[in-house]
């Protein structure tokens, strides 16, 4: 992970600053934790004595729970703070929050914020490692890592797979982190979305292919990665209606016909059934990797926590 600020602590703020070798090392570590998590005794002591604070400025159940489980399974003391309902409402700034947290001496902060760049801003003002659990429309690195782990375990590799990412690319941090990670690991990435949800020039910028027709975009795809649609954005401003969106870009068996017959279906959750994905498709146990993703999420987050706190264990 890229060093940011003074050593020894390092942050995980995005996929962009990671070296390819670091990504692979994280995935390898996570692989081991998958096996651990399937045992009845899931507890390790790697983070014993360390304090992990999950600081969520934006509501989230599954990501927060996943980080909480990850920390607890490694032996950390985990505290959840939902800032959306307390300090912000009282006018506390992000930097005030950072100062307050410093005084509590946490070892790892897991931060989600509704503004792009806000996690990096916070990281500049705290004296511990920070994991970005999603900042605005910028990055969501642990989601991309867990997606990569899911693909690697199911398909055996990532290089040369054709991966179609479909939906609201423009506002999606999941899309940005996945585009960076999957192209780095050698996948052929396609973006499928209406032009209003796909910033111009992404094909050149990221070396990906862009499709506005979903059937064409899914043709021959090994992986179909659906994005969650933010329904508040969909009322006549970016697309005319949910029904039209589902008609053109919702994942159905019919549209899937052009993809490879064993193509894997992924979704970061929570799903809008009947909006971006047909419920029956999502539930097909042979094709859908959606529950695998949830499982891999805990393992990947354990790996991130492990890597970011190694310097604390090495210290006398």
């Amino acid at each position: 992970m890229a060093a940011s600020g003074a050593p020894p602590f390092r942050h995980l703020l995005g996929i962009a600053p990671l070296e390819t070798g670091e990504i692979e090392a994280l995935l390898d570590t996570a692989d081991g934790f998958v096996e651990l998590n399937r045992r009845s005794d899931k507890k390790l002591a790697l983070l014993r004595g360390l304090t992990q604070i999950n600081l969520f400025f934006e509501s989230s159940t599954r990501t927060r729970t996943s980080f909480e489980l990850a920390g607890k399974r490694l032996g950390a003391d985990v505290v959840n703070m939902s800032v959306g309902v307390s300090a912000i409402k009282k006018g506390e700034t992000l930097i005030d929050t950072a100062m307050t947290l410093n005084a509590m001496h946490p070892d790892v902060l897991v931060v989600r914020h509704h503004d792009s760049g806000a996690v990096a801003l916070l990281a500049r003002h705290v004296r511990c490692a920070v994991i970005n659990a999603g900042d605005g429309s910028h990055e969501h690195p642990t989601q991309a890592l867990l997606d990569a782990l899911t693909i690697r375990r199911r398909m055996g590799r990532i290089r040369d797979l054709t991966i179609a990412i479909c939906g609201d690319i423009a506002h999606s941090r999941v899309a940005r982190s996945n585009i960076l990670l999957l192209t780095r690991l050698g996948a052929q990435v396609r973006l499928v979305a209406p032009p209003t949800l796909l910033p111009a020039g992404m094909d050149r910028q990221y070396g990906v292919a862009v499709f506005h027709d979903m059937r064409a975009g899914l043709e021959g795809a090994d992986i179909v990665m659906m994005l969650r649609l933010q329904t508040e954005r969909m009322q006549g401003s970016f697309v005319p209606s949910l029904r039209e969106y589902f008609h053109l870009y919702g994942l159905t068996w019919e549209k899937l016909e052009t993809a490879r017959s064993d193509a894997l279906i992924m979704h970061p959750g929570p799903m809008n059934r009947g909006v971006e994905i047909d419920g029956v498709v999502a539930d097909d146990i042979n094709r859908s990797a959606i529950l695998d993703q949830v499982e891999m999420g805990v393992a990947v987050r354990m790996a991130c926590l492990d890597h970011l706190t190694r310097h604390l264990r090495a210290a006398p």
């Binding site: 962009a16 792009s116 760049g117 605005g136 910028h138 941090r173 020039g201």
Partner: peptide, 11 residues
């Protein structure tokens, strides 16, 4: 609006 805004995830 352009590639930098796209990458940073800013409107």
């Amino acid at each position: 609006e352009g590639p930098v805004a796209t990458r940073l995830g800013l409107p």
